[in-house]
Each structure stands twice: as structure tokens, then as C-alpha cells.
């Protein structure tokens, strides 16, 4: 007789450990934080901010393993710039320099690499960042997946800007910069060969100028997060936990475009958990919300910005959502990846 004991996900790395959900958080808390512990890291922001000779520098790093390499609205090259630039921007930093490391798989067509590098260079130029050093490794065929890219970014945080996922306060207005789920569903539909009437396109974009516009409009912004892996729900849960506050959002206020909704309905996925690469969530002092929203709407990447809820002292660490019918429900962090349902 065998007895099914619950499986604790600590014996092996699962794909879910890279999902941005609870398993990812577990990994950080149980393995990385104890090993590397220091006050900068302990803030668990998208970037580490350090002061050197009076200059406040933001540093961040990100690896890109997207499949397919090319998708509607972008490719692994432009994504490698946008992802890192955005992680700097969420700290309010002006992005300045990037490093790029390529891990290439033996047999990769040279033309593919050239296309990715051209796209990466173009995205860097557009974002006003220079690539100042790099590295290349090649692994045996079968040990990689075409191209993996790591980028590290350095930016300068302007005087007086102090953003952190642990700085949200009760009363803050929760602002979302636009419609959600576009990157994740574009990738998924490309991967699964799904066709829709209106093509799904990734929202991949550099958000640094949007952030600069917001900060210029009103400095009373406490937290910025770009809801990438794990989607809006994971970012909100991280902020709720790190700031020790509750967050309440309105289902009817969250913009989801029809092609994303349609694809999500078809696959049984919730757009709140689907990745974005060109959106941000802001926790803003309620008194500044109108000014920040107006500034965002004047920027092409914030045209559809809207207030989706507020921060509360009730239920710290928990995100709730008033559904279309009225009652509230919890918006949880997923354990791992969203798995498509059977029926």
C-alpha cells in the first residue's frame, strides 16, 4: 500500500519555479535571500539602488528565454532591451547603459542571430541606452534553445525619487497604464498556432519615458511595477505583501482587449495572470492620482491608463477584487504557471 503524501516543491526545480508565482517567491526566500543577504537585495525591488559618490545608481539584470524567438510585436532582441530598461524605470531611474550576454546553441543560423542583434540594437537606440560590454557562449546542440540573452542595466535615479514595492500606503490609488495580457497571449497563440480574427500583438515597449512623464507631473508616486511574468495579480500580491497593505481592485475597471479576452476564454486562462511587457502598475497618493493619470494619458504608452482600485489598511497582504456582480473575491498569486483546463 502506498500513501500519497503531498508533494513539497523543494526536491527539484520545476518549470513553475520560473513562473513569477508562489514557487518563484519560495525559491527567492529559501535559497537566494539567505545566501546573498544584504539590505539592498532585501527590498526585493525590480532593481537594486545604491549610492556611489553621491550618485544614486539603479542596477538590474534579466535573462530572456522566450520561445518563439520572433513573435508579433517584437522578438527576443527587443524584449531583452525593454525588460531591463523597464526594471530600471520602475525604480524611477533614467536608463543609461546595458550589458548583453548571449548563450547560443550550436547550429543556430547566423541570419537568425543577425536579425536578433539588429533588433536589440534598434531597441537600445530607441530607448537611448548604450550597450557597453557583452559576452558570448556557445553550448552544444540540444543544451540550449536557439538563443538565450541576459542583459544588465544601469541607470541614474534622480534626486528625490524614492520608489519601492514596499512603499505603497493605505489610501493610495492603484493605476494601470493600459490593457493587459497582450504579450503573454501573443506568445502563447504563436506557440500553439492559434489564429484569431484580430491578431494578438505583444505590448513589448520601453516604459522609461512614460515613467519620467509621470514623475514630472507629480512626485507623490510610491510604487511602480511592470506586471511581467505572473501578470497583474502577481505584481499586486507582491506589493501587498512587501508594503504590508491590502489592495482592492474593480473587475469592471481593468481593460482587456477583445482578442486577449477571446483567447483567454478559449484556453481557460485568466488575463490577470498573463504576462505584459509594456505596462505598469502605479501606487499613487490619492491627491496626485488625477494629475498622474492625465500625464499618463498624454503619453502614447499610457493612453488607456485608468484607476483600477485602491490600497487599504484592511487585510494586509491580500488582494481582493469586486467582481462584475458586486461581491468581492480574492485575487491570489498562482503557485506555478497557469495550466490550460480540460474543459
Amino acid at each position: 500500500m502506498m500513501c500519497p503524501t503531498p508533494l513539497v516543491a523543494r526536491d527539484k526545480i520545476l518549470l513553475g519555479h520560473g513562473s513569477g508565482g508562489k514557487l518563484s517567491a519560495d525559491l527567492i526566500e529559501s535559497i537566494f535571500l539567505p545566501a546573498f543577504h544584504n539590505p539592498v537585495l532585501a527590498r526585493l525591488d525590480d532593481q537594486g539602488v545604491v549610492t556611489i559618490n553621491g550618485a544614486k545608481l539603479a542596477v538590474t539584470t534579466d535573462s530572456f528565454v522566450v520561445k518563439p524567438l520572433f513573435f508579433r510585436g517584437g522578438d527576443i532582441g527587443s524584449l531583452a532591451v525593454h525588460g531591463t530598461v523597464n526594471d530600471l524605470a520602475m525604480g524611477g531611474a533614467q536608463p543609461l547603459f546595458l550589458t548583453v550576454a548571449f548563450i547560443l546553441e550550436e547550429g543556430l543560423p547566423m541570419d537568425t542571430l543577425r536579425r536578433v542583434v539588429d533588433s536589440l540594437a534598434g531597441a537600445a537606440r530607441a530607448a537611448g541606452v548604450q550597450i557597453i560590454t557583452g559576452d558570448t557562449k556557445v553550448v552544444e546542440k540540444g543544451s540550449g534553445d536557439g538563443i538565450f540573452i541576459n542583459t544588465t542595466g544601469i541607470g541614474l535615479v534622480p534626486e528625490g525619487v524614492e520608489l519601492s514595492a514596499s512603499a505603497a500606503r493605505p489610501g493610495d490609488c492603484v493605476i494601470l497604464s493600459g490593457s493587459i495580457g497582450e504579450h503573454g497571449m501573443a506568445i502563447l497563440s504563436e506557440r500553439e498556432g492559434l489564429e484569431f480574427e484580430t491578431a494578438l500583438e505583444s505590448d513589448s515597449a520601453a516604459l522609461d519615458t512614460l515613467v519620467a512623464t509621470m514623475l514630472a507631473a507629480d512626485g507623490r508616486i510610491h510604487t511602480l511595477r511592470d506586471p511581467t511574468r505572473g501578470g497583474v495579480s502577481s505584481s499586486l500580491n507582491e506589493i501587498a505583501r512587501q508594503s504590508g497593505v491590502g489592495i482592492e481592485i474593480e473587475e469592471s475597471a481593468i481593460p482587456v482587449r477583445d482578442p486577449v479576452r477571446g483567447a483567454c476564454e478559449l484556453l481557460g486562462l485568466d488575463p490577470l495572470y498573463v504576462a505584459n511587457e509594456g505596462k505598469l502598475i502605479a501606487m499613487v497618493d490619492a491627491a496626485a492620482a488625477d494629475a498622474v493619470l492625465a500625464a499618463m494619458r498624454s503619453h502614447p504608452l499610457g493612453r488607456d491608463a485608468c484607476a483600477i482600485g485602491s490600497v487599504t489598511a484592511a487585510h494586509p497582504g491580500l488582494v481582493t477584487m469586486r467582481t462584475l456582480l458586486g461581491p468581492s473575491r480574492i485575487v491570489d498569486m498562482l503557485a506555478g504557471d497557469q495550466l490550460p483546463r480540460i474543459c
Binding site: M2, C3, P4, P6, L7, L339, P340, R341, I342
Partner: peptide
């Protein structure tokens, strides 16, 4: 189908 993958058997899933 995706959601069968997480169901634990006697020792693993």
C-alpha cells in the same frame, strides 16, 4: 491536458 500534470500519485506527479 495541462491540469492533470499537478495531481500527485504515490511518490511523484
Amino acid at each position: 491536458y495541462g491540469d492533470m500534470l499537478r495531481v500527485p500519485g504515490s511518490a511523484t506527479d
